[in-house]
Design a protein around this nucleic acid. Structure first.
Lengths: 166, 166
DNA sequence: CGAAAGTTCCAATTATAAATGAAAGTAAGT
DNA sequence: ACTTACTTTCATTTATAATTGGAACTTTCG
């Protein structure tokens, strides 16, 4: 397999992987493209290489910056903006984890916290409280786990745990 | 907040949470409904309580069974099928983790394994190999971690780790 | 200031994913 | 073997999410 084809496959796969996890396919593809580029790209590069419109490229680049996965980079003698991805995969993992924890896990934990004290003595009410309580416990633990592992750096955590468990 | 409203909120939230993570909203809602029901429900119950069609209800119930999150349950003297959810939230987490690992993580690891040896000495090629190699390392470790934690039971793992890190 | 280069926004369109419901399929009871 | 109760399938429709492209906005520099 030559480089061109391999790059294509990687971009495609990262896009598919992302969209299976609720990440906009194009956002994931732009991310993939920047990850494997050895120098910063501008909006037009992204548009050309992925065949997407300016608006789309721009929107997803901004989103990636928002996620701390990409940063603006200026080139000397150039006026326009360039973009480069964070290349440290452990940092990438940390940023993604933090962001998703904040956007999706934390709101769920907050809701479960409220729901577990709904009144009632019927089997339905008991069953409901049991489940929300258990889920609250699980999600809180997961939240704590992710919180600490992303503070200390996932690298430390995953390496330690995966070695330990081998 | 009364039970009816709380149930509604929970089903809604679980659906939203699921769809943010690439799970069909209705599938997540059916799961939520079964999680908080104190007794098995039949297809019609699901149809009524969630306002979905027979086909939809059936399709998502089957998918949930496929994920080992729901099982068929017969009621004495009843001919039709009933469904009940796995109520142990740690088992639920284990099943979801295993399933997603199998469906999405493993294929990615396999691809990265192939991609990290594309030929070429250009900066582009080197950059590509470095990234695929690093990602391969990360995803493999994550895979190992999830594998072991779901074998021993996530309960053990998350409890131990989240306590340890507190 | 005014033109040029670049960036962002957003209403309208298009693509993708999910839901419907009627029809076909299965199986249990008589 | 036939009827009835129930389940599954799938072509079509509908809802949701993503994309486009032009207009508006901002910045840079002679």
């Amino acid at each position: 397999m030559d480089l061109k084809e391999a790059r294509e496959q990687f971009i495609q796969a990262w896009g598919t992987f992302g969209s299976a996890w609720g990440i906009n396919r194009t956002m994931a593809q732009v991310h993939a493209l920047l990850l494997i580029s050895h120098e910063p790209l501008c909006t037009e590069d992204v548009m050309e290489q992925l065949n997407v419109s300016r608006g789309n490229a721009n929107m997803n680049l901004r989103a990636l910056i928002d996620w701390s996965l990409v940063r603006r980079a200026m080139k000397v003698g150039e006026r326009k903006e360039f973009f480069e991805a964070e290349k440290d995969v452990w940092k990438v993992a940390t940023h993604i984890t933090r962001e998703r924890k904040k956007r999706e896990l934390e709101p769920l934990v907050r809701l479960l916290d409220q729901l577990e004290d709904v009144p009632g003595a019927t089997p339905e009410a008991k069953s409901f409280r049991k489940m929300t309580h258990d889920l609250h416990d699980l999600t809180t633990r997961l939240d704590t786990l992710l919180d600490h592992s992303t503070r200390r750096d996932v690298q430390w955590f995953v390496k330690a745990a995966s070695t330990l468990l081998k």
